[in-house]
Amino acid sequence: LRQRHVACLARSERGLGFSIAGGKGSTPYRAGDAGIFVSRIAEGGAAHRAGTLQVGDRVLSINGVDVTEARHDHAVSLLTAASPTIALLLEREAGGP
Rank of each mutant, 00 (worst) to 15 (best):
residue 43 E to S: 10
residue 52 T to E: 12
residue 83 S to F: 08
residue 69 E to A: 12
residue 7 A to W: 04
residue 20 I to V: 10
residue 71 R to N: 14
residue 16 L to R: 02
residue 59 V to P: 00
residue 82 A to N: 13
residue 28 P to I: 02
residue 60 L to M: 11
residue 58 R to S: 03
residue 8 C to A: 09
residue 31 A to C: 13
residue 6 V to P: 02
residue 72 H to S: 05
residue 81 A to C: 13
residue 38 V to Y: 00
residue 61 S to P: 02
residue 8 C to T: 15
residue 72 H to L: 13
residue 9 L to T: 03
residue 54 Q to G: 05
residue 42 A to I: 14
residue 83 S to G: 15
residue 62 I to D: 00
residue 26 S to C: 13
residue 80 T to Q: 13
residue 12 S to I: 07
residue 82 A to C: 11
residue 88 L to D: 00
residue 91 E to A: 04
residue 84 P to L: 04
residue 87 A to V: 12
residue 12 S to G: 15
residue 39 S to P: 02
residue 64 G to L: 01
residue 24 K to I: 12
residue 4 R to D: 02
residue 15 G to P: 08
residue 53 L to N: 03
residue 81 A to G: 15
residue 60 L to A: 02
residue 95 G to M: 11
residue 82 A to G: 13
residue 96 G to P: 14
residue 92 R to K: 04
residue 54 Q to F: 07
residue 45 G to K: 05
residue 78 L to H: 03
residue 28 P to H: 10
residue 14 R to P: 07
residue 64 G to V: 04
residue 37 F to A: 02
residue 24 K to T: 11
residue 17 G to M: 04
residue 71 R to P: 08
residue 17 G to C: 06
residue 48 H to L: 15
residue 79 L to G: 02
residue 38 V to C: 05
residue 35 G to L: 00
residue 69 E to Q: 12
residue 41 I to L: 08
residue 54 Q to W: 05
residue 1 L to Y: 10
residue 91 E to I: 03
residue 84 P to S: 12
residue 90 L to C: 10
residue 87 A to C: 15
residue 91 E to D: 07
residue 86 I to L: 11
residue 34 A to K: 11
residue 79 L to Y: 00
residue 90 L to N: 02
residue 76 V to W: 11
residue 44 G to C: 09
residue 46 A to T: 11
residue 12 S to V: 09
residue 13 E to G: 13
residue 62 I to Y: 02
residue 90 L to E: 01
residue 58 R to C: 04
residue 87 A to L: 11
residue 70 A to L: 06
residue 61 S to L: 07
residue 6 V to F: 12
residue 33 D to I: 08
residue 2 R to N: 06
residue 25 G to V: 02
residue 53 L to D: 01
residue 63 N to T: 01
residue 55 V to H: 00
residue 4 R to V: 09
residue 28 P to N: 13
residue 32 G to F: 09
residue 74 H to K: 11
residue 66 D to A: 05
residue 58 R to M: 03
residue 84 P to Y: 06
residue 88 L to Q: 00
residue 96 G to H: 13
residue 36 I to T: 01
residue 30 R to P: 04
residue 66 D to E: 04
residue 84 P to F: 05
residue 45 G to C: 09
residue 52 T to K: 11
residue 83 S to K: 14
residue 82 A to F: 08
residue 59 V to R: 02
residue 56 G to Q: 01
residue 95 G to R: 10
residue 23 G to I: 02
residue 89 L to P: 01
residue 96 G to S: 12
residue 51 G to K: 11
residue 50 A to P: 06
residue 69 E to H: 15
residue 75 A to V: 09
residue 25 G to T: 04
residue 37 F to P: 00
residue 40 R to K: 14
residue 49 R to M: 15
residue 28 P to E: 13
residue 15 G to V: 04
residue 73 D to I: 05
residue 90 L to V: 14
residue 33 D to L: 11
residue 38 V to D: 04
residue 70 A to S: 13
residue 64 G to N: 12
residue 5 H to M: 14
residue 92 R to F: 04
residue 51 G to H: 05
residue 38 V to N: 01
residue 88 L to P: 01
residue 4 R to G: 05
residue 13 E to L: 04
residue 23 G to Y: 02
residue 44 G to W: 07
residue 47 A to V: 08
residue 59 V to A: 01
residue 53 L to H: 03
residue 68 T to W: 00
residue 20 I to E: 00
residue 45 G to H: 07
